[in-house]
Each structure stands twice: as C-alpha cells, then as structure tokens.
Amino acid sequence: MKQAMPVNEQQLGPNLTFYDLHPPATDMLEEVTRSLTAPRPHLHPKYFYDEAGSRLFDAITTTEEYYPTRTEAALLARYSSEIQAQLGHANTIAEPGAGSCQKVRLLLERWSPERYMPLEISRDCLLQSTRQLSRDFPEVQIDAVCADYCQALSLPADNLPGGRVVFFPGSTIGNFDPAERSAFLRGLHHLAGPGGALLIGADLQKEASRLNAAYNDAQGLTAAFNLNALHHLNNALGCQFDVNNMRHVAFYNETAQRIEMHLECLCDQELHLGHHQITLKGGTRIHTENSYKFTVEGFTRELMDAGFRPRGCWTDSDDLFSLHLASTD
C-alpha cells in the first residue's frame, strides 16, 4: 500500500498485512465533560460500543422491527452480479469502519478481488476480524489499516488500475449531519481515487410508524443499547449515572427527516467527571444519535455534489432501503 504518512507495517500471514497509522487518542473525560455541559447535552454514538454494546447491536439487527440489515443483505445477494457488471473487475475493495468485516464477505466470495482494505479505528477488532478473514479467503490480499476516519479518507491512491471500490454499507451515512455528510462523501471520493467507485447503503424515508417501531423494538434491545452508553461511561470514567432513572427516547423528526435518539433524566442526576461535578436536571435529554432518512433522488444529488457520477441504484420491493453505485469519473 502506497503510504505518505508515518505507519508501522507488520506481515501477519501470507495474505495479511497490518498497517498501524496510530489513530490519535481522544481525551475521553474531556470530550464527555464538554458534551454533557453543552447547552444541549449530547454524547457521541461511539460510546454505545463497548463489548456489551456490540452484542446488543448485533441482536437489534435480528429483530422483526429492524429492517435495514436484512434488507440490505438481500439487495447485495440479489444484485451483486449486476453491480459487478456495472463496475467491471474490482481490483481493490476498501471498507471504512469495517468492524467485524461480515458484510463484505459476500462481495469477496462473488467478486474475487485481488485486495481487500478494511479501515478500522479499533486495533483489537481489526486484528481479530482480519485474521479469520485471511484464512477464509486465502486468494485475497488483505491490507488491514488501523486508522480513524480522517486518516483513512486521506490515504493516497493505489498504483493498481481501476481505483478502489469503496464499500460503505449499513446506512451509517445517515448518522452524519448534512454538512458533515457532504465532507465525508468528498473524503470517500478521495479514498476511491481516479477510476474508482463507491457502493453505499442509504435508508429511505417511509411512514413514521415503521421508523418509530424500528428504534423502539418490543424486546427493548434498542433501549438497552442506548442506555449502555451510560454503563460504558460509568465503567470507564466513574460518572455515576443512575441508569435506572434514565429513559430511552427515540422518535422520527419529520421536519429534519431523521430518527433522533435521546436519553431522558427521570430525576436530577449528580455526575462525577474527574474533578468536576455536574447536575443534569430531571427532564433533561441527552442527544445520543441521529439517523437521517433519504429519498433516492435526494441522495443521488448528494453523491453528485461530492463529485461522483451515479451508475445505478437498487431498492427492495417495499422501497425500504437503497444501494447506490457511483464512480469517481
């Protein structure tokens, strides 16, 4: 991998190379203190994801109400050959925020690329998932890159012909506010490089009742996932959230066209953040996540504004979810 920034390289197997870009550590205490003392208290969605949070999210994706994961998987299974025909041969698949590298498996099986480049900030997660992947796909060269999004999107282009196919599934793009989303899409354009492409999932607008149900499942898994951010902070920072007196709130904001997730204080909360002590009054809501919903036409315009040329879009029969393919030139 051509690389212009400081990097440690390790050969971990015949087809597995690990590149550590040393993603910058954030001061968790400072960040959380600043977020919770803001005029509108909020937390970054990354705090959902400790070990328990990851298990809860995996469970959420299997619930009857949560349609995005299974709908996108069905679209990929049904249309992967058609998408490949639009692309031609994919030399390299790059996946920012690859996590467990599960969704890309179908593309590795059906497209047989020369190279797969997962980009992930969690070193342990990246090492665990790619070691297994390298055994399952011995003909694919895996270049595992430990980096944050900023570093990942600044990577120089490969020397291979055809650029990279950037794979960004799961409607994660909906977690970005519009200005952030515009900048992020431009970063994906840079990551794909000349002659490259983007295959991206986007959740579609639909009736509010369907969306509200997806984020308020009957088993209470999404509520537990949201509340787990507080357990995570209690364990990591000793914040002393009284989690039993916090309530999961999720609703579709039709004006903003997004699901909002909040945590509401049911009583006053005295929090300990290092040497600081802050009070959150009963009724205060901590904003934990947005999930924007799109139209095919609207998201296509956003791709074009970021410099992409639309090549195709695939949706399910109920128009719940969309897969978009776009090229960089």
Rank of each mutant, 00 (worst) to 15 (best):
R123Q: 04
I93K: 00
G99C: 12
P138L: 13
P113G: 03
E95I: 12
S112H: 15
E109Q: 14
Y79R: 05
L107R: 00
L160P: 00
C101H: 09
R115P: 04
V145M: 06
T92I: 13
A152W: 15
V165G: 11
D148I: 01
R135S: 10
L106V: 15
L155Y: 02
T172A: 13
P156H: 11
T92A: 09
Q128D: 11
G97W: 01
E95H: 13
V165I: 11
A90Q: 09
L188F: 07
V166K: 12
D158Q: 07
R105E: 14
L106W: 12
E82W: 14
F137Y: 14
R186G: 13
S154R: 15
T172M: 12
A197T: 07
N91T: 13
A152M: 15
N91A: 15
S112D: 12
Q102C: 02
A157Q: 10
P178L: 04
A152I: 14
A202I: 08
G174E: 01
I93W: 01
L126A: 15
F184E: 05
G170A: 05
P161W: 07
L188K: 08
F184D: 05
A94K: 08
E139H: 03
S112W: 05
P138S: 14
S171A: 04
H189P: 11
M117Y: 06
C150D: 15
G174I: 00
R181Y: 08
D124F: 06
C101P: 10
A98L: 05
F176G: 03
G174M: 02
G163D: 07
L188E: 08
Q151Y: 04
P169C: 12
R181N: 13
P118H: 02
N175S: 03
I83G: 02
L153R: 08
E120T: 01
P156V: 11
P138H: 15
S154F: 15
D136H: 14
R115I: 03
R131V: 08
C101D: 09
T172E: 13
V140N: 01
D143R: 00
N91R: 12
A192N: 10
N159P: 09
M117R: 10
L191P: 14
A157T: 07
Q132H: 07
H189L: 12
L198W: 05
R110P: 06
D143S: 01
N175R: 02
L185C: 05
G97I: 00
Q141K: 10
Q86D: 13
S129L: 11
M117F: 09
E120F: 02
G187I: 09
L153Y: 09
I83A: 03
S129V: 11
L155K: 00
A147T: 01
P194I: 05
P113E: 01
A147S: 01
G196M: 10
G193F: 04
